[in-house]
Design a protein around this nucleic acid. Structure first.
Lengths: 122, 122
DNA sequence: AATTTAGTTGAACAGTTGCTCAATTGAGAA
DNA sequence: TTCTCAATTGAGCAACTGTTCAACTAAATT
């Protein structure tokens, strides 16, 4: 029988190592934090957004510049910039009709570097 | 007219800053690398997988342990472990009927830490 | 005022994703 | 062998996601 049937009814198996499960359960971060973390990585998990961020690592650019650079429509770029804005990964400034986007802080660079490290290794 | 109409026909606007676009285009990493990077982050972009990885940061566990810990079916956990395995983020060892999973390397920890840093800031 | 253009927005559609369910595999126990 | 159980697998389905398209806003130019 499942050791946690009372509070976890989806459980369909025995707890083989009850001591480990109890210990990990206690030390595991709150679900809220882990969900926020997943949501952040979800933003990085699209090649269009990664390409936009990579471009902004090199220079501040307007929507039109990015669209031309990546060979995509302004609309699709604008949609993705909205996602990046909501995740506080990019910031922008308006000059007349033109909106210039740039990275909000340096976290993008370090996260990218760690990711590339995992990919290029072995 | 779009300055890159020849090789990029989706372009629907002028290149406002042609010099910047040309410079960034030259220095931008290859699309293959950026797609691989996005695919890696895609794996981190699901709360179930993040919770699994967080658990494995604390202890080696079998499928059943993880299922009980997270209150999910063995099947769904197994499906996600397969994704994590393909991304080379977890490794496993078999002992009889039981399969023990653990983290493949320490990249997960550093990537998580960087992500948490971005979230908790400001 | 009328036109042009950078950028945004929302609906719609296709493609993807994660969970469920049922069937199956494989190793140990009876 | 037969039974049990940990784990895997594939099909099916509902929910989500990214692009397209068309309409729209706003700022500059004529």
């Amino acid at each position: 029988m499942c050791a946690y049937a009372a509070d976890v009814d989806r459980c369909d198996c025995n707890s083989i190592h009850e001591d480990i499960v109890l210990d990990v359960r206690e030390r595991l971060p709150d679900d809220d934090n882990l969900i926020d973390l997943a949501d952040l990585f979800k933003v990085f998990g699209d090649s269009t957004r990664v390409r936009i961020l990579s471009a902004l690592l090199l220079a501040e650019m307007c929507v039109c510049d990015i669209a031309v650079l990546l060979g995509m429509t302004k609309s699709s770029i604008s949609h993705q910039l909205r996602v990046l804005k909501q995740a506080k990964l990019v910031k922008y400034r308006k000059l007349g009709k033109v909106v210039y986007y740039s990275l909000a802080d340096d976290h993008v660079r370090t996260i990218f570097d760690q990711g590339l490290l995992h990919i290029t290794e072995e």
